[in-house]
């Protein structure tokens, strides 16, 4: 691949590795396990692509994002999406200042570096649309004035896949705005034990003459371990990670196969290929490499591709699931195009 940026040196790689390691360690002091989610969060942060986390409540999503924002000294805001939320509650609005009898712009919570859009599927489509438009354009118009969103700007949205009543499912076009959609799993038994041990160590916090039981949020260290400059350096380093022609061939092949799979009605768009490439570069950097390898692709394929594919009705009726299809597509790589894997996974 033609690299416009200079090749990443070992010194650059070590500096970035150090920064990433420090952030990981800080997150690990509060959040147990979830290494993959932390990795996806950092990938999103380094590439400027937004992240949608799908998982049941109680998997430390908010805690994770809080600790990440504090680790790198970034502004953080959280919006709980509900059915009665209005676009102005997110973007901001003009309010009448009665002292001077003029309208004044009051910026909404979207003007932050890290925005947690909790349970995004609970808001009405026009609210979802307002947020997703801002995500895409990275600017907001309030009244007659247009404001740029701060940089870096990253939206981490969450969605509960179980509870579907009173929700508005995001359409494919809007899901496509998220570079990654990561499906959270429950922690392993050993991780869960560690969570319980750590939680039991929390005490009671005296406050305003009274006392409250401490939560993980109360023990978050306020001191950042990385600066915005280090984050920018890491973002630049991602763009200097080498991508070989062979790797691009793998990406093109994989995206093409998603369009030809018999169970898939709508395959991946070229944006999926771009996202795969960007995310793979960031992952390579996080694993101390200055070049991408097929493992990056294999690791990120599900998070990048699955929400961009629509299965056929017949396939869904037969119980075929998207994860199995992505795994089958990955197994079929290396064989002739259009051939299913020799021992492809089914439902």
């Amino acid at each position: 691949m033609t690299q416009t940026a200079p090749v990443l040196t070992n010194a650059d790689l070590k500096t970035t590795e150090k920064f990433i390691q420090a952030v990981r360690e800080r997150v690990a002091t509060v959040v147990v396990g979830q290494d993959v989610v932390v990795e996806r969060l950092l990938i999103s942060l380094f590439t400027g692509g937004h992240l949608l986390l799908q998982g049941v409540p109680g998997l430390a999503k908010t805690l994770l994002i809080s600790v990440l924002s504090k680790s790198i000294d970034l502004d953080f805001a959280r919006i709980q999406f509900t059915i009665d939320l209005l676009p102005s509650d997110i973007l901001g609005s003009e309010v009448l200042d009665q002292r001077i009898n003029e309208f004044r712009v009051r910026k909404g919570p979207i003007f932050t570096n890290l925005l947690l859009a909790d349970e995004i599927n609970r808001a009405a489509p026009k609210v979802q649309g307002a947020l997703l438009e801002a995500m895409q354009e990275r600017k907001v118009t309030i009244g007659n004035e247009t404001f740029r969103l701060p940089a870096p700007f990253l939206v981490i949205a969450t969605q509960n896949p179980v509870e579907q009543s009173g929700t508005f499912e995001l359409p494919e076009a809007q899901l496509d705005r998220f570079m990654l959609v990561h499906r959270l799993d429950y922690p392993s038994p050993s991780e869960e034990r560690e969570i319980l041990v750590r939680n039991s160590a929390l005490g009671v916090q005296r406050q305003d003459g009274g006392a409250v039981v401490q939560t993980e949020f109360d023990v978050l260290s306020k001191e950042p371990v990385g600066s915005t400059d280090q984050l920018i350096a890491a973002m630049e380093a991602v763009h200097r990670v080498h991508v070989s022609e062979t790797f691009i061939e793998h990406v093109v092949d994989l995206v093409n196969r998603s369009r030809k799979h018999p169970a898939v009605e709508l395959g991946c768009s070229p944006r999926a290929g771009i996202a795969l490439l960007k995310a793979s570069r960031a992952r390579a950097l996080m694993h101390g490499r200055h070049y991408t390898v097929p493992e990056d692709l294999f690791s990120l394929a599900e998070d990048v591709m699955l929400h961009r594919m629509r299965l056929k009705y017949e396939a869904i009726a037969e119980g075929v699931n998207g994860r199995a299809i992505v795994a089958e597509l990955l197994r079929s790589l290396g064989g002739a195009a259009g051939e299913p894997a020799k021992n492809g996974a089914s439902a």
């Binding site: 062979t246 793998h250 294999f298 690791s299 394929a301 290396g334 064989g335």
Partner: peptide, 27 residues
């Protein structure tokens, strides 16, 4: 380029079959 890609992942597919790793995740 196409041959390189096929050589690399063809070998992966071969070893996956040979070592009975069909039910492991690709990563």
């Amino acid at each position: 380029r196409e041959q390189r890609a096929q050589l690399e992942l063809g070998l992966v597919a071969f070893w996956r079959r040979k070592l009975a790793m069909e039910h492991e995740s690709p990563v």
